[in-house]
Each structure stands twice: as structure tokens, then as C-alpha cells.
Design a protein around this nucleic acid. Structure first.
Lengths: 329, 329
DNA sequence: CTGTTAGCGCCTTCAA
DNA sequence: TTGAAGGCGCTAACAG
């Protein structure tokens, strides 16, 4: 910066100000500084700048599971977009399993290393929540509502309810729910979705008995569902927790020769990028909106002196495609 | 840090050393410092630390296109994994279109803001390459070989050649290549894949005339391919540039009633996460290996005083599934 | 509008 | 093995 100052014939303070476009510097001087900086291909050290100002201009996101997941990818993309427009950078933390998660909470690497932290879709224990609040930095939770904290969440229960009602309206009575029973890495959404299904099954007089089918991580969902179809009163419709699971189920059932939706209707949840190609009926979840709003919320809290917490719930939408139809007679 | 020093009854220098596990500090002192730091829930400011040492402990990745892409997601995941093990953080830059890319090259936000930059899969113009080398930081290119620079790349040409040969061996003679003709955001891989196909078609005496089918961004690939099947000498096999394109093509053809592989064999490229569900034969591309090696290479260059450049080419693998078979008689 | 003067919090000599 | 002193590069407050 000294070099630039010398070349432009001004002081370093002026260079500093000019480079940040301060109105306190005359246009001509600013211009001169910019030219000098370009000539020397100079760039401000963000580390030094951060040290002096106390602002990192960087927001961290903690995600659970692979970054390549449809959900995580879409979310990060939206977060990036919003942060980028605000001139902020994106720092990523990822935890794949409980061990990594414990490590994260033990060391809290985000502390003093970002201006805010967005916590995406992971169920936290009470101790972990407390640990986060000790962080002393703005926190935004995605898909998890916590008292006294900011959050943006999809209305999972309402979405699952809508899916269930969709099948009821098509004439289905025996409707099951298929869930992936992850212990680790379980999302709060998961529980909400089952409960939405349960509520409708309990309250709607048309509905038969509820039935939840748990699929363990390595299992083939089709192998779990297929035997049920031979029973005397088989389910005619299935609400599946996520599109990913639904697509695995469908491709398995197709191979076993099950006609969809002739014999069995299937509706997913997410509106995964590949769902359209599968013709999968589903409950669309606006993950990009989720990411955008989470980022906005974080930016807002960073800007404010006394940050206020806000809670936002975004709606889902039924997408009718080819895997749901009337039940067999 | 002062507080910690006081609480532990030592100087700040000792705290600094102890916190980084320096062997110059006696075990008891170290222990005392660690306890004090934990009690005060103190964490080192990376900004200050970076300013003093000149190391950011952060590596940036520049990706083109959405982070939610299968390729980008998988790559970032592998990069993250490797960096995390080495105690480095991941900073992300994304360019969606030419405008954003120009902006990136104009401002070079990564300069002095990361210890190294990994440039993932984008075709660079000569001026952009030069601009990057002016950055004065270690550079690693993914899927793009540049003279005098480090790179890790998939052998795209060999992969496409293997796909073509696979069809030839099944008995196909009239084999086409389907490509997505993106102008912007074109990956270097794209060109290599066509050329691998071309080479085999030219050199293998069994092969008929080559035929490249270009699909523009918004187009329905099935709509482009379907009319060809009515010609007198229709293609019986297609090598498709990417699994994503292949899956779009397949789902379209299924709807039009084309039997795969009865009437037409289709082979993709990537081994996309959903390829197995589609039963898609493909050329598997080890993107995770690519990411891991790119990160390792970056770490190596950051560690070295006089960084040496290295070039690595990783192989692909044929995955036979249900979309390729013998041609119709 | 511009220059001068102190730090920001940490790390690295150099001395003890 | 530990402490003291200076500086990393930038910004903010205060003069002018």
C-alpha cells in the first residue's frame, strides 16, 4: 500500500480510503490511486483489513452430509448468490458423521473466523445449541426452530399433510409413509414430515390405519415395500420422505414389474432435480428460497448493532406428475 | 490472549506458543495455558494470526456453474475432505456466466485471500490464464492442462474412445455422438470427449461415418434424436457427452416409445449419482479422486518454498448397465 | 479533502 | 524454557 501511496503521491490513509470508494476523497485523487494500484496490481490484504476493522466479510455455513447432495448443493448455491451480491464471502464447514460433528463443537473453528454462522438442517442436542450461542456471533438456523434464535424453515408438516391429502382425494384409503431411519445426521425435517402424515391420517375420516415403513441406510426400499403388496389389504399409496428415497424405491419397483401408479401411487418430497425426469409426483420444497432467506437474515444480523432474531416459515407446493393416480379397484 | 496469559501466569508469547503445541513450552505450562484458554473459551483470531505469519490456512476453489451440480458437488466434497484433514479451510468462488467470470478476473478477489487457488473445469482464455499467473499464488487446474502449471485431469479422450469401442464390440457400426453445445461455461472436457470419439471412428475399420448431434441449452435432446431413427440408415448406438444429457435423452425417448437398448443403445459419461437408478451404461469419471488430488497438489505447493508443478491424469472406467446391447438386425 | 498517529491480535526474533 | 519488543498491513480518530 505504501508503494501505491508513493506512486500516486498521497498518503497511505488516502489510498486506503480511495480503494474503498470513500466520498471523503476527491474524484481526481481517487482516480490517481486506482490507476497506481492497477499498475502495481495491488490488492488489499483482507487479513490486515479484518484485523483493523473487526469485520471478516465472511459468513460460514455448517452443513451436515456431503456437499454433493441435492439439498446441500442447492442451498449453498442460493446462499452464495446472496452473499456475493452483498460482497461477502462463503466459508464452508461440513460434518459427515457424529465424530466430525463432535469435533466441530469441541473446537468451534468458526469462532472469530466469520461474521455469522448459518447452521443447515441438523438436529442439535441442547448442549450443542448452548455451545453455539456461546460463540457470540449471529446465528441462523435452517429447518430448525429454536427459541430466541433466528431461523428459516420449510413447513415440512404441512407439506407431508398435503401429500397425504392428495392421495386421499385420488381415492386412496390405505396410505403408508416411507422413511429413511438415519440415527446420525437426522434432519429435524424428518420428524415433522412423519407427523404431518400422521395428523392427516388420524383426523381425516376417509383414511385407513397409518403405517410407517422404515428403511435402514443400506436397505433396498423396494425390497421392503414389495412384500406388502401381496397382503390382503395392501397399501395403494405411499408418501415417501424424500425424492431421493422415492426414486430408489421406484426404480426397484419398476424392475419387479409393479405398475405405477396402476397398482401403487407414490409421492415424494423435495422436487429433487431428477424428479421431473422420473415423472415423480412430489411436494416441492423451495430450497433456494430457504438459502436466500438464511443468507439475508445473516447479513441483516451482521449489519445491526443489536441484532434482532427473526423466524421465517416458507411454504411447500404440490407437484402432480405421473406417479400418482386413482387406486386399483 | 492477554487474559489467558494472566490467568495462566505466563506471558502472551508463551500462550501463543502453547496454543500451537510448540515443543519449546514445557508440558505443565502448556497444560496450564490450555486450561485457562478453555475456561475463557478463547480462540485465536485467524485474521491476526494470518497477518503475522503470512499464511491464511485457507484454500480457494473457483467453480463454474451451480454448486449443486453433480460434478461440482462431488469435487468440492473431496476437496473439502482433504483440506480438512490438513487443517485448512475451504473458500468458494463461483461464476455462473461470462459476466461473473469477467468480474472475477477483473477483481481477482482470491488474491491475498487464500494460500492457493484451485481452478475447476473451465476453459480459460489466454488473457485470463496470464491474469491468474500474475496472482503470484500456487495454482492448480482441474481438467485443463496448461504449460508450466499444475493440473489434475480426467482422460476424457480415452474415456470417450472406450465408450465408442464398447458399442463397436457389441456390433454397432452407425454410432453417433451427442453433445451439449454450450458456448459459455464450456468445459475443456467437452472437446476432448468428442475428439476421443472421432479418433476411434476414424481409426477403427468397423466404424461407419461419424455423426455429431449438437443439443442447444434449452432443447429437448429426444426431439433431436427421434427423427434420425426414421432415416434409412439410422444410428443404432449413441455416445452421449454426459450422463445428465443422457438421462434427459432417455426419459424423452422412453415417452416416445423407443425401446432401449432394443432399438437404440445409449452410453453416457460421468457415472452421475442417478445413473445407476436409470440403469445407464456409462464411463465412470473419478471426480472424488480428482478433487482429492487437486487439493493435495495445492497443499504440496503451499508447503514448498519453490513449488514445483505436477501434472496428473486419472483414468476412467467402463460401467456396463442396461442401456447398451447388441444393435437391431 | 488529506496527512499523522495509534493501535487491531498475533508471531517471531533476540535476550535472559 | 520463558519474557520483552517490534512489526505484519490496514483503518480510525484526530488534526490540519
Amino acid at each position: 500500500m505504501e508503494d501505491v501511496a508513493e506512486r500516486a503521491g498521497v498518503s497511505v490513509s488516502t489510498v486506503s480510503r480511495a480503494l474503498r470508494g470513500s466520498p471523503l476523497v476527491s474524484p481526481e485523487t481517487t482516480e490517481r490511486v486506482l490507476v497506481a494500484a492497477a499498475a502495481l496490481s495491488f490488492a488489499v490484504s483482507r487479513a490486515a483489513s479484518s484485523l483493523a476493522t473487526g469485520k471478516l466479510n465472511r459468513i460460514a455455513v455448517l452443513v451436515s452430509g456431503s456437499l454433493g447432495t441435492w439439498f446441500n448443493g442447492t442451498l449453498l448455491d442460493a446462499v452464495y448468490e446472496t452473499l456475493h451480491q452483498a460482497g461477502q464471502e462463503l466459508l464452508i464447514y461440513r460434518t459427515l458423521d457424529t465424530q466430525q460433528r463432535d469435533e466441530f463443537f469441541a473446537t468451534l473453528p468458526a469462532r472469530r473466523n466469520a461474521d455469522a454462522l448459518i447452521v443447515a438442517s441438523l438436529s442439535l442436542e441442547t448442549t450443542q445449541q448452548r455451545r453455539l450461542s456461546e460463540l457470540g456471533m449471529p446465528l441462523v438456523f435452517v429447518n430448525q426452530r429454536l427459541r430466541g434464535a433466528s431461523s428459516v424453515a420449510v413447513d415440512d408438516a404441512a407439506g407431508a399433510a398435503a401429500a397425504t391429502r392428495h392421495l386421499l382425494e385420488l381415492g386412496h384409503r390405505r396410505i403408508g409413509f416411507v422413511s429413511a431411519a438415519h440415527a446420525i445426521d437426522s434432519r429435524p425435517s424428518s420428524a415433522d414430515r412423519v407427523s404431518g402424515y400422521r395428523r392427516v391420517m388420524a383426523e381425516d375420516r376417509r383414511a385407513g390405519r397409518e403405517r410407517v415403513i422404515l428403511v435402514a441406510p443400506g436397505d433396498d426400499p423396494a425390497a421392503m415395500v414389495y412384500p406388502l403388496l401381496d397382503q390382503t389389504r395392501p397399501p395403494t399409496g405411499l408418501v415417501v420422505e424424500s425424492d431421493e428415497l422415492a426414486m430408489r424405491l421406484l426404480s426397484g419397483l419398476y424392475r419387479l414389474g409393479v405398475r405405477i401408479p396402476g397398482e401403487l401411487s407414490v409421492i415424494g418430497f423435495d422436487d429433487h432435480a431428477s424428479a421431473a425426469a422420473f415423472g415423480l409426483s412430489t411436494i416441492a420444497q423451495p430450497v433456494d428460497l430457504l438459502g436466500r432467506e438464511a443468507a439475508r437474515c445473516a447479513l441483516r444480523m451482521v449489519g445491526a448493532n443489536r441484532p434482532r432474531t427473526t423466524q421465517l416459515v416458507v411454504p411447500t407446493q404440490l407437484v402432480r406428475r405421473e406417479t400418482t393416480g386413482p387406486p386399483p379397484d
